[in-house]
């Protein structure tokens, strides 16, 4: 089993809903993003193309971050999800340096808040209880592994059932993001990648990403 995503670029409208859904799901502090929307342009007038890429940790099959981590804090599960054990991270930042996609963040200030000088919002208060983030350690997208694990335990199928699927996928208003098992030849994600010629983002980095993009 290897969880993966396929993102249809023509469907993405750059609304940032996936970014907000991720922030809300994981109670991410200010300035920490587990996924982002990159917006650029290519070509010259009058043939200019606007590029909108929703990016996050590619959960690479051959991840540079896992190799360089000196403590074993960055680990890869059997289902391919790369995650950070916050209790083992020393904060050396070698993984952040090594990631060619720059999809890792260091949570430095444990007291940061969205409205400095004011009281914490209710969301922030709940977040500190439900999803406490340890300061001084590296964070990244984990494909909402908590949702996947609890969903599977409840007999649900990630990518099919909302409760077992990553927040960014189910929040996308245009259904641009597909999620599923890349090792299952009959999964919907494999069908989409095959039929629409999905390709990984910058395969030349040589890390074998689990996220595919469809032009």
């Amino acid at each position: 089993m290897r969880w993966g995503m396929a993102i249809e670029l023509k469907r993405c409208i750059g609304c940032y809903e996936c970014v907000l859904a991720c922030k809300a799901e994981h109670f991410l502090p200010p300035d920490i993003f587990w996924n982002r929307v990159l917006i650029g342009e290519s070509g010259k007038y009058p043939t200019v193309t606007k590029l909108i890429y929703n990016v996050r940790c590619n959960q690479c099959a051959d991840p540079a971050c896992v190799k360089v981590c000196p403590t074993g804090a960055t680990q890869q599960r059997e289902d391919g999800i790369v995650w950070v054990d916050e209790d083992k991270c020393v904060g050396c930042r070698y993984c952040m340096i090594a990631c060619p996609y720059q999809m890792r963040s260091m949570y430095e200030d444990g007291n940061s808040q969205y409205f400095p000088g004011q009281e914490l919002t209710e969301h922030e208060k709940v977040g500190k209880e439900l999803y406490p983030h340890q300061p001084g350690v590296v964070q990244k997208c984990v494909f909402c592994k908590e949702r996947i694990d609890s969903g599977i335990a409840a007999g649900l199928t990630p990518g099919v059932d909302r409760e077992a699927t990553p927040a960014c996928v189910i929040s996308c208003p245009t259904k641009a993001i597909h999620f599923g098992d890349l090792d299952d030849p009959n999964s919907e994600i494999n069908r989409v990648i095959k039929e629409k010629h999905g390709h990984p983002f910058h395969p030349e980095f040589g890390t074998d990403p689990s996220i595919y993009y469809i032009d």
Partner: peptide, 14 residues
């Protein structure tokens, strides 16, 4: 340089 220097003993691990 480390954020958590007291965990540095873990740096022998890999």
């Amino acid at each position: 340089h480390l954020s958590h220097p007291f965990r540095s003993w873990r740096m022998f691990m890999k």
